[in-house]
Simulated scan of single mutants.
Amino acid sequence: MLQRLINDVKESTGSALRLTSLAAAAAIALSITIAFLCAAAFVYVLQHYGPVEACLSGAAVFLVVTLVAVAVYAVRKREARRRAEQAAKAAKSAAATMFADPALIATGLQIVRAIGVKRLIPILAIGGLALGLMASRSAAASGEPAEE
């Protein structure tokens, strides 16, 4: 069981590393392509209109690209904040309904009495660790970005 978990972690790490290196190579190639296109556009404007106009047109293009990137970032950050607030509300309401159920509370008290508090603490620690691992794996599998 533990060996399978370790193999899964190794496999996913290797896959993520290969995908990251492929994405980095694509990003480098794209940036070089964009640099050559910008240089060609600069030379074209320089030959037809002059150096001042070439510099101003290059600055205007990069200003527009920057403004678009800032707008996309602001929208994504707002969406992430809204999703986080909705998830917090859902978790809070689920916890409130779970602890408001008298049958669940009675069952929990019976389990504590049967097992004992000293034996229950390590079991709860292992359960919490397993729950955390399951939550992190499900978040990674769903592909949700971890933005703030």
Rank of each mutant, 00 (worst) to 15 (best):
I111E: 02
A95L: 11
T13K: 03
Q110L: 10
A27G: 07
L56T: 10
Q47H: 09
L129T: 11
I123Q: 13
F36D: 08
A69Y: 08
L133R: 08
V45D: 03
A40R: 09
Q3R: 10
R76P: 02
I121F: 10
T13Q: 06
Y49S: 14
S136E: 11
V70A: 15
D8E: 11
L37G: 02
F62H: 09
A114N: 08
V64I: 15
R78S: 12
Y44Q: 12
A60D: 04
L129N: 07
A25G: 05
I32C: 06
A91H: 02
R78A: 14
G108F: 04
F36V: 14
I34A: 14
K10N: 15
S15H: 05
F36E: 08
E85R: 12
Q47T: 11
Q3F: 04
A146F: 08
A60M: 10
A146Q: 02
Q3I: 03
A29K: 08
I105K: 13
G143I: 02
A29C: 04
L46P: 01
V64Q: 12
M134T: 03
T97D: 13
A135M: 06
G58I: 11
L120C: 00
A125V: 14
L104S: 06
P51Q: 01
F99K: 06
Q3N: 12
A24C: 04
I115M: 05
V9L: 11
A91M: 07
S136Y: 10
A114C: 01
P145A: 15
S15V: 05
A80Y: 04
E11K: 00
K118S: 13
D101K: 02
V45P: 00
K77R: 15
S21K: 08
L124K: 09
A96R: 12
A91T: 02
K10L: 13
A54M: 03
V112C: 02
G127I: 05
R82N: 05
E11D: 03
L46K: 00
R82Y: 03
S93R: 09
A96M: 02
A84I: 01
L5F: 12
L17S: 05
V72D: 13
R18S: 08
A114P: 00
R78M: 09
L109D: 12
A91N: 07
A106E: 15
A87P: 01
V75A: 13
A103W: 04
A84E: 06
F42C: 00
S12L: 09
Q86F: 09
L129R: 05
S138H: 04
S21Q: 13
Y44L: 13
L120G: 01
T20L: 11
V72P: 00
R82D: 07
G50A: 04
I105C: 05
I115W: 06
S31W: 03
